[in-house]
Write a protein that binds this DNA or RNA. Structure first.
Length: 577
DNA sequence: CAAGACTCGC
């Protein structure tokens, strides 16, 4: 296979390319690409596939796609490499699109391709689509029995989609379960908040003489963070120490992250402080732990420390800090971060760009948001959503609707969050007719099933406009069990339009769902007071005293001249940037 | 075939 007297053949090149991908050496990979072209080796499918893989693993999906599109001799591997590339890069829509094309071109997936498709659907997390891919697997497998690998992938897919029954069925059908299948099964139970069953399975696994790997423990810790189960998280922490697991940085990161998500800052901080070597990830984890606890000052303080300790902040650090600014309405601080990003030459990907757009929009600088949005080369659905929600928040409902039309024209498909933003925009701008037609378009035009949040928006929209009866009808006729937010919207509207009888209906429902909620008890007693029903007022007050409801200290903040003033129940805390 | 942080809605 020698060409032009070269010693390098088309088996050597893919091997080197794989090595490049592993250490993320795009530059060397590109040179080898050039070399392959010069030596006429780029026509070989094996070489091209390796190039696609190298580019996609190095994050250059555009280059990968270009090669893929130009390839005259695509095989199954080319298709599955492209799908995998998009999947790993988090571009799920693109991965699905390639899958559809592959199907359309009648390319029969290999087992490897099927496994990577199933794991793609694990992240898509849609039960119905998951069942479809399961059927596809069954159709394409020659053998009666599924291989262990693909069965494990399916178990993982079903449990992450929330269908534990199917997952367990497949799990039980496997005659020899590996550490991996145990890991995905137990993780699945924790993710679905079936903690006790998860713990029981963990014990069962040990009894069967299968011992957890580092990845097993890591996965379980991550799932604890996902559902906020501090107790199990703590137990796993102790388990690592007792059983001599290596306390790697990955382990520490997972634990800090879990503690942060469980709002257990102290443990997160202690663990963080105790690590001798720290990487960007653990800094980000501890910063976001403070962020989740709304400690904006602490988070920025750590950011300063981070810079001092020679660890370079990255895009993720910036996203975390920006969303804090967004939450606090701290425009000046957000702008400062924006400048910092540019000065440091940090790569601004879609996520960071969206965080910036969102920050400008929510902090009131809609023009600034639009400037960034319009100069973006690549816009995903999240960025469009941020822009529309930003307009909606400031009462610019019409602009939001125009953006929606533009978005559809540009071929980006709306999702359920898009409609929450749009319905909110209509609600704030008092566009009742438009809001109704948006809802109608979502259900009948696009076939999306409205979630409880959408009904919440509709109740808010109708209620704000004074159509209280219509709002009430909406609640009564919806196919989902109304939650606090839905009734809360009706209650707020009743208060706004001074309708105590409707308010009572809503408040009664809310107190049934959450009797210990202090805020709603106060509202309820106010409603009774307005209606001169002093016995009922006394009743509510008594209930409040009995359950000794504890209110979390709420806070609000405002930025003046680059200073963030944080108000905690009347008191005020300053923080200087 | 299992793990690693971040954006959009409430």
């Amino acid at each position: 296979m020698r060409k032009n007297g070269s010693e390098v053949d088309n088996f050597t090149i893919p091997t080197i390319l794989k090595a490049c991908a592993q250490v993320l050496m795009t530059r060397l990979g590109k040179e080898i690409h050039g070399f392959a072209i010069k030596n006429g080796l780029d026509g070989d499918a094996y070489v091209s596939n390796a190039l696609i893989q190298m580019y996609s693993e190095c994050g250059s999906l555009v280059s990968a796609r270009y090669l893929f599109d130009e390839m005259p001799n695509r095989d199954v591997v080319s298709w599955s490499t492209m799908i995998r590339g998009y999947h790993k890069g988090g571009l799920l829509e693109e991965a699905l699109e390639v899958m559809r094309e592959m199907h359309f071109m009648n390319v029969r997936p290999s087992e490897v391709a099927l496994i990577s498709m199933v794991s793609l659907f694990t992240d898509v997390a849609d039960v119905e689509l998951g069942k479809a891919i399961h059927a596809c697997v069954v159709r394409n497998c020659k053998d009666e029995k599924l291989g262990v690998a693909i069965a494990t992938a399916l178990i993982d897919m079903y449990s992450k989609c929330g269908n534990l029954a199917y997952a367990k069925q497949l799990f039980n059908r496997l005659n020899q379960n590996s550490v991996v299948s145990w890991t995905v099964m137990i993780s699945g139970y924790i993710r679905c908040n079936e903690i006790n069953e998860g713990i029981r399975l963990f014990a069962e696994m040990i009894e069967e003489n299968v011992f957890p790997s580092e990845i097993t423990i890591l996965s379980l810790i991550i799932e604890c963070g996902f559902v906020g189960d501090l107790q199990l998280g703590r137990w796993l922490h102790a388990y690592i120490l007792r059983n001599g697991f290596e306390f790697s940085l990955a382990m520490a990161n997972a634990l800090v992250d879990m503690y942060g998500k469980c709002r257990e800052i102290r443990s997160a901080r202690t663990l963080f402080d105790g690590m001798k070597s720290k990487d960007v990830m653990i800094w980000n984890a501890v910063i976001s732990a403070y962020a989740q606890a709304h400690c904006i000052d602490k988070a920025f303080e750590l950011f300063i420390h981070m810079k001092v300790s020679k660890v370079r902040p990255n895009e993720v650090t910036m996203v975390g800090l920006l969303s804090l600014c967004t939450e606090a309405g701290a425009l000046e601080m957000g702008k400062w971060l924006h400048t910092y990003i540019e000065k440091q030459g940090l790569e601004v990907d879609v996520i960071l760009k969206t965080a910036l757009v969102d920050m400008y929009a929510k902090c009131g600088d809609v023009n600034g948001a639009y400037r960034l949005f319009s100069e973006a080369i690549y816009r995903d659905i999240c960025m469009w959503n941020a822009m529309m929600a930003g307009y909606g928040m400031h009462g610019c409902g019409e602009e939001a609707l125009i953006f929606f039309i533009d978005m559809e024209r540009s071929g980006v498909k709306p999702n359920d969050i898009t409609f929450i933003g749009l319905l909110n925009a209509c609600s704030h701008a008092g566009l009742v007719t438009e809001g109704k037609s948006v809802f109608d378009k979502m259900v009948h035009g696009l076939g999306l099933v409205p979630k409880i949040e959408h009904y919440g928006c509709m109740v808010d929209l109708l209620g704000r406009a004074g159509l209280l009866d219509e709002a009430h009808e909406m609640i009564k006729s919806m196919p989902l069990r109304p939650n606090m937010i839905v009734w809360g919207a009706l209650l707020a509207a009743s208060k706004l339009h001074k309708n105590p009888s409707m308010g009572e209906i809503a408040a009664t429902q809310i107190l049934e769902i959450e009797p210990q909620n202090y805020g709603y008890n106060v509202l309820m007693s106010n409603i009774y007071a307005v209606a001169n029903r002093w016995n009922d007022v006394a009743g509510v007050r008594r209930v409040m005293k009995e359950i000794r409801v504890k209110k979390e200290p709420g806070f609000s903040s405002v930025e003046v001249n680059g200073l963030v003033h944080k108000f905690i129940r009347g008191g005020m805390v300053n923080w200087k940037s």
